[in-house]
Design a binder for these strands. Structure first.
Lengths: 192, 192
DNA sequence: GTCTATAAGCAGATAGAC
DNA sequence: GTCTATCTGCTTATAGAC
């Protein structure tokens, strides 16, 4: 077995355990057992436990941060730009072999140990609130506090992610489109 | 200071720490420090750390489980029964001095240690899915998997709870009504 | 009802052989 | 690249004085 496979397997098994037990409650011994290696072997692939969660996080957040910022700056209806972003986000996440909902649901980034990751996430949330504000100003969305809008988008994204992790996804693109539609329903003003 | 006050204060401070750090990551020393007592004094009020989280959980779940089941069996439009339930749920949670979102967001009930609590929550979710199914069958709600509907209701409830914990709530009833309206928007079919 | 002292166990991480 | 053995520190919880 090549190194890269073990590395990938660590990320997959760790994400599933983080989802089930939480980051702090998941021990490096449990991760190692799921990967079928002994606990100290983990430290050949990652310098520490924190680095595992950071890599899973980066996998989903780095590109998302760029794309949401782009969506903020583009022209056109805010609801369409948000919809496009959500379709990309959901289809990307649905394709990943890791249990991505673990990251946002879990306890990891709430502790001060992960202040840097939390700051990145905060910047992402700021762009999302900006985009929602644009939609409220243009009359596309109902008038809610953009912060509440952001919390709803984030929580519904996680809910949809958890749903897709339970049922068998055959067409990630279709389920991503349905998810984006559902999220926008929650605060898009009726057109007719 | 009376015993009951210290007990209550432990529940409040513990819930805030559970929300911030997660159940497993919050140490009994940290809880004790927040309450201004020493760590072993906690064990005079609660037999163990688990009992603290169980009490916070029971505070919100016991009555909720009875009420959602009643809502399932009553007559009338399912959307109205769900709305009434959500208004009660949100206004009750918004009035509590504990950080109630901690319980559902957190890592606590995912571990096997809390299998009993998880079973109670599962029964609650079952009733919620039943009520959503009724609304889909009657044409009040859009046609989605009831499981996805349940995940959305639960995640939006938590989002609204987190929102109310951030901003200062002056009128719990009004904000509860607005929250229930917003949650139902997500999958109620337009009437006109 | 709160304290100090401490037990018993488990965590993440390192050393060094193979 | 994986192993066995082990260190150090921190965790929950108990014992028993006041």
């Amino acid at each position: 077995m090549e190194t890269v496979d073990t590395r990938q397997e660590i990320l997959i098994q760790a994400s599933r355990l983080f989802k089930k037990l939480g980051y702090r409650a998941t021990t490096t011994r449990e991760i190692a057992k799921a990967v079928n290696i002994k606990q100290p072997s983990l430290f050949h692939h990652f310098p520490n436990k924190k680095a595992i969660v950071e890599e899973i996080f980066s996998l989903s957040l780095n590109e998302a941060a760029v794309r949401i910022e782009e969506a903020c700056r583009r022209d056109g209806p805010a609801s369409e730009r948000l919809h496009q972003y959500l379709v990309w986000d959901l289809s990307t996440l649905h394709r990943m072999p890791m249990a991505m909902s673990a990251i946002y649901t879990g306890d990891a980034l709430k502790s001060e140990e992960f202040a840097e990751l939390a700051a990145k996430l905060k910047a992402f949330y700021h762009s999302l609130e900006d985009l929602i504000s644009q939609g409220i100003d243009s009359g596309e969305f109902v008038e809610i506090d953009p912060m509440l809008g952001r919390l709803i988008v984030a929580s519904m994204t996680i809910a949809h992610l958890e749903y897709a992790e339970e049922v068998t996804v055959t067409d990630p693109d279709r389920i991503a489109r349905e998810g984006a539609d559902l999220i926008l329903r929650a605060f898009r003003r009726e057109q007719n």
